[in-house]
């Protein structure tokens, strides 16, 4: 839902980042207001996951330029855990397995960390069990998954559902979902998309990274951005996704080539 007067939650300006010595993000700008759903699309390797991890504060990436303001704060100066407590959520493209750490315990600690960030009191084990059982229904997940180690031995789709369960518990202000739809069967896709729609509201915002129109059929984006070699090359409404579905990314090369020429011609 686009409301021009809605508060800005996330404002990315000319963000540049590298991993080791290799520049990956080369100037990303993006403004997200409360209530909005944004989709980011783009070829493999164009920098979508990098953008999401830089936002969440992954230590492997070094920001080399630009700014990110998150609800008025300088996001980049915050430790990753503080970003999370402030309501920034990243649904990982490849959630890692953490053997030996119980999923239930992990979810409880994470939930309480977020609650502390909102100034709410800690939930004890019993109160948390009630909450988690209720939220399990959003993703129609079997409570048996709570007893296992975090993501350990989960199937690809089960890991993605566990991500959405976390999102449902953590009540994010800005959720960045990195290819949460890939690896899901048709039913699971519907469940996960239903979960995202259920959690999206006028006060929060969602940034969906996806390759497929089928997700955008169920979650209608307000904006679609196309990323290429570390930049947002084009922004449009939901029709842009349909256009991509039809035409593929070949046009991107032409635009990129034009972009490369521009500075020289201008200069």
């Amino acid at each position: 839902m686009i409301r021009p007067d809605a508060p800005v939650l996330l404002e990315i300006r000319d963000l540049q980042a590298r991993v080791e010595d290799q520049p990956i993000l080369k100037g990303v700008s993006l403004t997200i207001r409360a209530g909005e759903i944004h989709a980011v699309m783009g070829r493999n390797g164009s920098g979508k996951s990098t953008l999401s991890k830089v936002l969440a504060g992954h230590p492997a990436y070094t920001v080399t330029g630009g700014t990110v303001r998150y609800v008025g704060d300088d996001l980049l100066s915050l430790e990753p855990e503080l970003r999370a407590r402030a309501g920034l959520f990243l649904g990982f493209q490849y959630p890692v397995e953490i053997p030996g750490v119980s999923n239930l315990e992990f979810l409880r600690v994470a939930t309480n960390a977020r609650r502390a960030g909102k100034g709410e009191e800690e939930l004890d084990t019993f109160a948390f069990e009630d909450l988690v059982r209720e939220r399990l229904q959003v993703v129609q997940m079997d409570p048996a998954f709570l007893e296992r180690s975090v993501n350990e031995g989960f199937s690809g789709g089960e890991k993605k559902r566990n991500e959405i369960l976390q999102m449902a518990l953590l009540d994010p202000l800005v959720a960045v979902l990195d290819e949460t739809d890939s690896g899901l069967d048709i039913d699971a896709l519907r469940i996960v998309a239903g979960g995202v729609n259920h959690l999206a509201g006028p006060d929060n915002a969602t940034l969906l990274i996806t390759h497929y129109q089928r997700l955008l059929d169920v979650i209608t984006p307000d904006y679609v951005h196309v990323m290429a070699v570390g930049r947002i090359l084009r922004t449009g409404g939901k029709e842009l996704a349909l256009e991509l579905e039809e035409r593929g990314y070949d046009w991107v090369d032409a635009e990129l080539a034009a972009l490369e020429r521009t500075p020289a011609e201008v200069g």
């Binding site: 969440a56 492997a60 430790e79 855990e81 407590r85 990982f92 890692v96 600690v109 994470a110 953590l170």
Partner: peptide, 16 residues
């Protein structure tokens, strides 16, 4: 223990 595992936990609000 990988940096990615720790980052995963951190990205859920859990201090290092």
């Amino acid at each position: 223990i990988s940096a990615d595992q720790l980052f995963y936990l951190q990205s859920r609000g859990i201090a290092f």
